[in-house]
């Protein structure tokens, strides 16, 4: 049930993708997203999709998991594709059929490309979280944003907050599951009735959940204070990141991909 959400989930592993420096992965994910928006023609999408397949294969994450990650955005996908299809301009596909006049080659092209772009965007970004543990990810954020400390941005505190937030997602999901079960055991029904009845049925879940989140926050704050935690300067990390040869290789491949896409844009 609620545990089946895959977006933003980490799958432990020891693949070459898992082993990359998390900072590399953050930067290269950004580069990949940029490359997706640079693409102008079909060949560019082909290159991008091929790149994604290589990454999926290297990471050894089951393909089914990747597909499941797309499920939540299916609606957005259909919505965008439909509108691109309707609002296309240019030559109609069926020039003899007057009532299909709105269906143009241009619109079809845009709809397909837009759908592919969104799918690659979602898979690309989820792959960062599939292969990088949340702790590594926030570590990478902190390290990459470190220059902002010069303009008094509390980078460490922000990344600590993010770590804690990410750390508590599974806990709260577990908690939600437990509360749902407990209220079901008392005959609560979340699945029938109109939208208002269903919204009202959520009250017995939300109130205990909020209360428990506050309780946990307080306990954690106490525990941190007991250990004399204070953020900011001079804190060292338990795991120090090091760029390795594989990071350079990954960066080279990803930049090569972007260069190829730009090249394809120019020639076609």
């Amino acid at each position: 049930m609620i545990k089946d959400i895959t977006l933003g989930q980490y799958f432990p592993g020891a693949s070459p993708i898992h082993k990359l420096d998390p900072r590399t992965k953050v930067l290269l994910t950004i580069l990949y997203i940029v490359s997706l928006f640079v693409i102008r023609g079909g060949w560019g999408y082909f290159v991008s999709a091929a790149m994604m397949f290589v990454i999926i294969a290297l990471s050894r994450i089951p393909f089914g998991v990747v597909l499941r990650g797309i499920k939540p955005i299916l609606f957005v996908l259909l919505f965008t594709a439909t509108f691109n299809l309707i609002y296309g301009t240019g030559t109609p596909i069926f020039e003899d059929v007057s009532w299909l006049g709105w269906l143009t080659w241009n619109g079809l092209r845009n709809a397909v490309f837009m759908a592919v772009r969104i799918i690659l965007l979602v898979i690309g970004t989820s792959f960062m979280t599939y292969t990088t543990s949340p702790i590594m990810l926030t570590g990478a954020m902190e390290s990459l944003l470190a220059p902002l400390k010069w303009v008094k941005v509390p980078v460490h505190e922000l990344s600590m907050m993010m770590t804690i937030a990410l750390r508590f997602i599974p806990t709260l999901v577990d908690e939600t599951d437990k509360i749902i079960s407990a209220q079901k055991a008392r005959g609560a029904d979340f699945e029938t009735g109109n939208i208002f009845r269903r919204a009202k049925a959520l009250v017995p879940i939300l109130i205990p959940l909020i209360i428990s989140a506050f309780r946990r926050a307080e306990e954690l704050a106490d525990a941190m204070e007991c250990r004399c935690y204070h953020g900011g300067n001079d804190r060292t990390r338990y795991k120090v990141f090091h760029f390795a040869a594989r990071d350079a290789l990954a960066a080279l491949v990803m930049t090569g991909q972007l260069a190829l896409i730009i090249f394809l844009n120019v020639v076609t």
């Binding site: 437990k178 509360i179 079960s181 407990a182 009250v203 017995p204 109130i207 205990p208 209360i211």
Partner: peptide, 10 residues
């Protein structure tokens, strides 16, 4: 009655 049932009061 689940474990720590007091957390389901609302």
């Amino acid at each position: 009655v689940f474990q720590y049932p007091e957390y389901q009061l609302f």
